[in-house]
Structure formats: C-alpha cells, structure tokens
C-alpha cells in the first residue's frame, strides 16, 4: 500500500542540498501538506542555500531570506503586514534550522510565541550548524563529535529539549515529526494549519554529511531514532495535553549510534549511559502523557 501523502510538489529539482539531505525531504513533505498559500521566512540555515542562490529559487512558494536571529520577529512582522492588507488566508511559516531555533533565534521565537503570534514555526533539526561546517549547537546530542567538539572533547551536554521549552510558553500546538514517518508528519502539518496562534513543529532531519553516515541510510537513521525512543513522536496541545503518536518496541539505542561516524568514539560504557538517559526521557514523557 502506498503511503498516504498528498501528490502535489512545490519544489524544483536541481537544488544544491547534499545527497540524501533530510532537510530537503522535510521541506518536500511539509509543502505537500501545507499547499502554496504560504510565505516562508527563512533565517540563516542550510535551507538558505538549498532554496537557491540569487537569482535561482528551488521553491514554488514565496520565501523571505532573513538574518539568523530573526525567525520569530520577521514572521511576526509579515503576519502583521498581511493582516493589515486583510489577507487572512496566507499562512506565515518560519523555516529554521536547529541553530536558528535552539540558540541564535531563540529569543525572537520565545517572544513571538509569548505574544502568541499567528504563525507556524518549523525547526528542521540536523543537530549542529551543518551549513557552516558542523559546529555544535545546543541541539547536538550527548556524545556527538562536531568540529567544535572534536576528538576526546566530544559533547558532554545533553540536547536541549526545545519542545518542552515551547510547551512552557503554553503554545497552542507543539509537535515532533520525522522524515521517516511522512504520514504522521503530513497529519501534524495539516492539523497545525487549522490552529490559530503560534504553532511549533520540531522535525527530525538527518544530515549524512555532518553525521558521517552513508547518504542512502538517511531515512533509515531517522526511523531508528523514533524506534529507539531517541526522538519520540508526540504532540502537545495548549501546553498541557500530551499525545504520544508512536509507541516503539523499545529497541536498544546501540545500533543507532553504531551506524554513525559522529558517535564512533563512544565506548560500550558511554552507550549504556546514553541508554539510561533515553530511558529517563521516555519515562518522563510517558508520565506527562499520563500513559
């Protein structure tokens, strides 16, 4: 049975994403679900390149390139301008990477969500500043190698839980989604589209270049992250109502780490520690969801 995903594409081929780019797949699914009546606000991130260098364009929808830290504020402004024009049918979408969301753009995002600006904020998360050369971000997971956490100085801080940070704002809708689960992703986008106020989607997007994996297993890795509880699929409504969308069979995380070059220095002891962290996070989520 073919997966149930809308047919229409709003992207051109010939974009310059790396082979196997998860962020390109994430955009493809997002636009399929979202349709063309949108304006994308695009702070600096991989997608600033993928969308095309002037005068080229890889998207069939309007995009405003903007500065790294302004995803939330520019979207607020565009929304206000559209409202002044009486255009309520166009959705404003900020499409930002993890650096522009977790770190540099966080205050603008937090401010916009606190004001409950009427827009959708999508963070496609490839767990480091990939575009500029694989520097660690606060989204980089515990244990990962990056060019700024090289050799034995691999990252020993845990990944920031961005959804929880947004939930603390009592955001009307926050959800995680994965490129390996397109039906779930499409459903969440369609759901977000119909909600008023701030909406946040955290989309897991593999980066073969930065994660040191063969490009062909890009989707497989994304799927494993969900199957191993590393990246659970869930949604939170109004900051309180949790729904877990996929309850995995709790496979050990080991296999996921073993496949990726960025984790190749980890010992069995480190992996056991990571397993503990993943279990702890999952238990916490289950408690919140009341399961």
């Amino acid at each position: 049975m073919p997966l149930n995903v809308p047919e229409q594409d709003y992207m051109y081929p010939g974009h310059v994403a790396c082979p196997g780019c998860g962020a390109a797949i994430a955009m493809r699914f997002f636009l399929k679900a979202m349709g063309e009546k949108i304006i994308i606000v695009l702070p600096a991130c991989c997608w600033s390149i993928i969308a095309g260098a002037y005068p080229q364009m890889s998207l069939k929808v309007p995009v405003i390139h903007t500065a790294f830290e302004t995803g939330g504020s520019v979207a607020s402004g565009v929304r206000a301008a559209l409202d002044m024009k009486g255009d309520t049918g166009t959705t404003v979408v900020t499409w930002a990477g993890d650096g522009g969301t977790f770190d540099i753009g966080f205050q603008a995002l937090s401010g916009a969500v606190e004001r409950n600006e009427n827009f959708i904020y999508v963070c496609y998360d490839n767990e480091a500043y990939m575009n500029t050369g694989i520097q660690r971000s606060s989204s980089t997971p515990y244990g990962a190698w990056t060019t700024t956490t090289p050799g034995r100085s691999w990252k020993r801080m845990r990944k920031k839980n961005i959804v929880e940070a947004l939930v603390a704002h009592r955001i009307p809708y926050a959800a995680t989604a994965s490129i390996a689960f397109p039906e779930d992703l499409v459903r969440k986008v369609e759901k977000a589209k119909d909600i008023k106020g701030s909406r946040f989607l955290h989309v897991y997007a593999t980066c073969p270049t930065g994660w040191r994996i063969p490009s062909e297993i890009s989707i497989k890795i994304a799927r494993m992250a969900v199957q191993n509880n590393i990246f659970p699929l869930y949604e939170v409504e109004d900051g309180v109502k949790y729904t877990i969308n996929y309850k995995p069979k709790e496979f050990p995380v080991r296999e996921y780490f073993k496949l990726q070059g960025r984790f190749k220095h980890l010992t069995e002891g480190d992996l056991a520690e990571i397993q503990e962290m993943v279990n702890e996070d999952w238990e916490l989520l289950l408690k919140k969801a009341g399961d």
């Binding site: 081929p13 010939g14 082979p19 002037y54 005068p55 080229q56 890889s58």
Partner: peptide, 17 residues
C-alpha cells in the same frame, strides 16, 4: 528586495553522482 526569477532546474545536479 532582490527577487529570484529563475528556478534551480538549470543545475544539473546529476553531475555530482
């Protein structure tokens, strides 16, 4: 506002393969 007016279809990225 610099506005793009071409699509990326001119880039034959197949050459990377």
């Amino acid at each position: 506002f610099a506005r793009s007016y071409l699509s990326t279809e001119d880039n034959k990225t197949g050459s990377w393969r």
